[in-house]
Structures are given as structure tokens and as C-alpha cells.
């Protein structure tokens, strides 16, 4: 046993330095050199100020913006310093109530719209920070956003279509729309397009 202590302690310390200090700092260095923007969080700036990360969903409640996935982070939605899903089980009455109340909110914000509600608009994302919605969820909101902004629905729809990403390399993941980028694009629409 005694003969094992010296190699155990030495190896543990040396391998800790290699894998716990040298390796992560080397990766940090490579990140700064090759991918500085990504390594810092893919921040989006408007007028020189960071307005968010293109990877992190924001909470939108104003009818003139597209809304993202519901978020179960606490103490408030889309808390990017405390990611979390709801962890509600499929049979939990609280889940049923949450979904029904989200459906109601969407319907009230857009009384004329009787289409069934796309599932991703009324279910909490896994991270609570999902930056995307599906194209169906965007289409569902086009009429509401257009009305709130006094725009023709086609303009809003075209913008949403432009912002739609297909499956990566045609096979990976799902088609999706980045909600923050879409809303930024909406805010940047030139005034003369408004009827």
C-alpha cells in the first residue's frame, strides 16, 4: 500500500494540472484567437449596446413582438443565470393548467385566430432559454404582430420566412425561427413600408 501513495498523489496532482488548468486555458486561448465572438456568448449589439445573445431566448409579452417558447426558469421567465425546465410530469394537473392558460392568453391577444395552437408555443422549453420557435408558431402570430404594428400581414410573414432556418445540413434538428433576431428585424423595418 505504501508504495502506491507516492505515485497516486503525484499522478493525481500532475494530471489535475494538465486537464484542469492547462487544457481549459489552452481552449480559452484558442477560442479568443479563432472564435472570439462565439466564445463570448454570440452577443448582438444595437446602437453599440448589447441587447442579448442570439443563442439565448428573451421574454416577449408585447403583442407587437413575436413571442418565444414559455420559460419555467425562476424567479422570472428566461432567467439566463438560472436555466431550468418545468419538470412537470405529463399527468401533472399543473401542466394541464399551464398549457390551458397559455392557450387562453394567445387567443385573447388575437381574438380572430381560431387555428389550433402550435405545441411549442404553449409548452416550456428544456432550458427555459430556447431562442427559437417553429415556423408554425411564427405563422400563428403573424396576424397579431401585423395588427399591433399596423403592417400588412404579408410583410411580417415575409420577414418571418426570411428568418426561418432549415434543418442544419438538411438533416439535423428542426426548422426554426430565431425570435430575437426576427423581432430585431421587425424593429428595423423602414417606416415607409407601414401602410
Amino acid at each position: 500500500m505504501k508504495t502506491l501513495i507516492r505515485p497516486a498523489v503525484t499522478l493525481f496532482i500532475l494530471l489535475s494540472i494538465v486537464t484542469g488548468l492547462i487544457y481549459p486555458l489552452l481552449v480559452t486561448g484558442i477560442g479568443q484567437a479563432l472564435f472570439p465572438k462565439q466564445a463570448a456568448g454570440s452577443l448582438i449589439e444595437r446602437d453599440g449596446k448589447p441587447v442579448g445573445s442570439r443563442l439565448i431566448g428573451q421574454n416577449f409579452t408585447d403583442p407587437k413582438y413575436f413571442w418565444g417558447r414559455p420559460s419555467a426558469t425562476s424567479p422570472y421567465p428566461n432567467n439566463a443565470a438560472a436555466s431550468s425546465g418545468s419538470n412537470l410530469g405529463p399527468l401533472n394537473p399543473a401542466l394541464k393548467e399551464a398549457v390551458e392558460s397559455r392557450v387562453k392568453t394567445l387567443r385573447e391577444a388575437d381574438p380572430g385566430n381560431t387555428a389550433p395552437v402550435p405545441v411549442d408555443l404553449v409548452t416550456a422549453s428544456a432550458s427555459g432559454l430556447d431562442p427559437h420557435i417553429g415556423p408554425a408558431a411564427a405563422e400563428y402570430q403573424v396576424a397579431r404582430v401585423a395588427r399591433a404594428r399596423g403592417l400588412a400581414p404579408e410583410i411580417v410573414r415575409n420577414l418571418a420566412t426570411q428568418q426561418t432556418e432549415d434543418r442544419q445540413w438538411g438533416v439535423f434538428g428542426e426548422p426554426r425561427v430565431n425570435v430575437l433576431e426576427l423581432n430585431l428585424a421587425l424593429d428595423q423595418l423602414p417606416a415607409e413600408q407601414k401602410p
Binding site: R69, G85, S86, N87, L88, P90, L91, L95, K96, V99, E100, V103, A115, P116, V117, P118, V119, D120, V122, T123, A124, S125, A126, S127, D130, H132, I133, G134, P135, A136, A137, E139, G173, E174, P175, R176
Partner: peptide, 26 residues
Amino acid sequence: LFAAAGVDQTASAIQAGGNMEGKETR
């Protein structure tokens, strides 16, 4: 239970559908 609440869970070209509670859109 979602279907009963008027929610569309069908898979199509414009949405993944299914049980999206606790899942990411991408």
C-alpha cells in the same frame, strides 16, 4: 391532455409536433 386543450401536436414540415414540454425547438 394537450390535444384536449386545442393544441396542435402533429408533425409537419413547419413544426416538430409531439410532446414538446421540456424540449428545445432546435
